[in-house]
Simulated assay, not measured.
Amino acid sequence: MAHREELSRFLKSARARLSPTDVGLPAGERRRTQGLRREEVAALAGMSVTWYTWFEQGREVQLSVPMIERLGRTLRLDANEREFLFALAQHRPPPLETQIDEDIRPATQHMMDSLSIPALIIVEDWTVIGWNPLVTRAFRDYAPLPRNQRNLFKILMLSDRYRSDPDHFREMGHRLVARFKWDYSRTSKPEIFDAIIAEMMEQSDLFRECWQESTILPYSEHVNIALMPGVGDISFWHSSYAVEGAPGQRLILFAPLDEASAARLTKLAADTR
């Protein structure tokens, strides 16, 4: 296939333009051909020589996103070349290269505080970094929690608060893991997710079950119910949005699903003020 032939030419060219000293290897003896050897590229990228050789030859082998990222770094690809590599190898753009931005812009916080619905902001590993007063009233107060205890994925999957209805909890768990897998596939920093995955494998039977499934969920919107003593149950429809100009941040909004929930949320907001 043409794209596989182009992938082979591209990788050979990228390998040929690098010398051992470019990647921290000794110069060694004089080489018959210019550039790095295949086994050197494979070792630097953490791949088997056979797997890399097949990939460079254009065979129908599939590399994971982290492996392609490591290969791109090994070959010193620039942003355009990285995008080209992903297009040839996976027929899609590469994951967004983001630095986790944990600074909430004043205008963003002001907007959240002005809303009459709960709103919070998470970064790509699902850590909550910002919220408005209604989140504190309807869900939980994140202020006293250190950063490592504000991971929304772990809170939802591990807290006893969500286990009162086993069927609902299982449905939520499958949905959360499917979305978490999608985020994991797109991150440029898989090591952050790897640590969470390792922890969840130890602590959650449901996570281990869901992680073996192939389901993914590329968007986040669903209905959830907040149990509010003194106010009544509030059904929320929640969805998430990227925060423009703040790489890695995602705004999650919780809108009342029906008139009864809207009335109860209005009462909750009045009590909060």
Rank of each mutant, 00 (worst) to 15 (best):
Leu7Tyr: 06
Leu7Cys: 07
Arg9Gly: 04
Arg9Gln: 12
Phe10Gln: 05
Phe10Cys: 04
Phe10Gly: 05
Phe10Tyr: 07
Leu11Trp: 00
Ser13Lys: 06
Ser13Arg: 07
Ser13Trp: 00
Ala14Glu: 00
Arg15Val: 10
Ala16Trp: 00
Ala16Arg: 14
Arg17Lys: 11
Arg17Gly: 03
Arg17Cys: 02
Leu18Glu: 02
Leu18Arg: 00
Leu18Ile: 03
Leu18Ser: 02
Leu18Asp: 01
Ser19Tyr: 01
Pro20Arg: 10
Pro20Ile: 11
Thr21Tyr: 12
Asp22Gly: 10
Val23Glu: 04
Val23Tyr: 05
Gly24Thr: 11
Gly24Ile: 12
Leu25Gln: 02
Leu25Met: 11
Pro26Arg: 14
Ala27Val: 10
Gly28Glu: 13
Gly28Ala: 15
Glu29Pro: 07
Glu29Val: 14
Glu29Gln: 14
Arg30Lys: 15
Arg30Met: 09
Arg31His: 12
Arg31Gln: 13
Arg32His: 08
Arg32Gly: 10
Thr33Arg: 02
Thr33Lys: 03
Gln34Met: 07
Gln34His: 13
Gln34Cys: 04
Gln34Glu: 09
Gly35Lys: 07
Gly35Ser: 11
Leu36Arg: 00
Leu36Glu: 00
Leu36Trp: 03
Leu36Pro: 02
Arg37Ile: 09
Arg37Met: 12
Arg38Asn: 06
Arg38Ala: 08
Arg38Glu: 02
Glu39Cys: 08
Glu39Met: 10
Glu40His: 07
Glu40Pro: 07
Val41Met: 01
Val41Tyr: 03
Val41Ala: 03
Val41Asp: 01
Val41Gln: 05
Val41Ser: 03
Val41Lys: 02
Val41Asn: 04
Val41Ile: 09
Ala42Pro: 02
Ala42Gln: 03
Ala43Thr: 15
Ala43Lys: 14
Ala43Cys: 13
Ala43Glu: 15
Leu44Trp: 04
Leu44Ile: 11
Leu44Lys: 07
Ala45Leu: 05
Ala45Trp: 00
Gly46His: 12
Gly46Thr: 10
Met47Ile: 12
Met47Gln: 13
Ser48Tyr: 06
Ser48Arg: 03
Ser48Ala: 12
